[in-house]
Amino acid sequence: MTAPERNAGATEHPSTGQLSAHSASAATARAADVLLEARRIGKRFGGLQALDGVSITVRRGEIYGLIGPNGAGKTTLFNCLTGLYSHDAGEFRFDGAALDTGSPDRVARSGIARTFQNIRLFGAMSVLDNVMVGRHSRTRGGVFGAILRTAGTRAEESAIRNRALDLLGYVGLQERADEQARTLPYGDQRRLEIARALATDPQLLALDEPAAGMNAAETNALRALIERIRADGVTVLLIEHDVKLVMGLCDRVAVLDFGVRIAEDVPAVIQRNAEVIRAYLGAGDD
């Protein structure tokens, strides 16, 4: 299931984003199908080995958790994957081919979208415009089309707008479409970031601590949203500090400690893993 394929056909206008019938069964059928593979990724910052031969395997259709004490290298791995940092060793494979992590925009076009730990919205733009920006890489309107307002450009523009409105509805922000992004409450900003990321038609959605700073109700809503995103056919890679959330939500979990992956398994096994318990107790869980 690749991005262009998914884009083909479908011209219906759904009132809400419902679980698409095919996705759940597809996820089961392809449970063993690998979407993303990190192979022995290494990254050094001066004297600090931030990542030391980290390998993870994310299967298509799963929610994959990445946990570890503070400074374990989770966000560094995210940044290497999404092209913000260049890694010194190893390679990423995505959707059956080597992933070019040379620049973040290329990674996004390959089908990996991300959110940021310290929310990075386009603060002065409207909520709707933020999501519309997410459509950039999947549309092609140029300067001359814009100046001449050609029929093609206008059609594309309204398609962008409608898609963005649908995505806002999907995350429950349709009422706030015209507000300035920076004026949104914290929890809404997190959800807007997810909508913006989804607008790039990702196969893999990478969420960097999406529940940070959320209260219990917001966290529950987020959890439901993530499950729905997965059910709709997008694989989710999740960094999270809230261990309870990760264990309840993720199909499989990897644990990083001091830049080394010390475990990768289903939550039930991870919870009993002696090394993981030691890492968390030793470093002090926060």
Binding site: A8, T11, E12, P14, H22
Partner: peptide, 18 residues
Amino acid sequence: MSEPGLSPISADRASAGA
């Protein structure tokens, strides 16, 4: 895999009709 998805995630409705 090209069934028309019902969710906005899996549907790019680039319809000029809209």
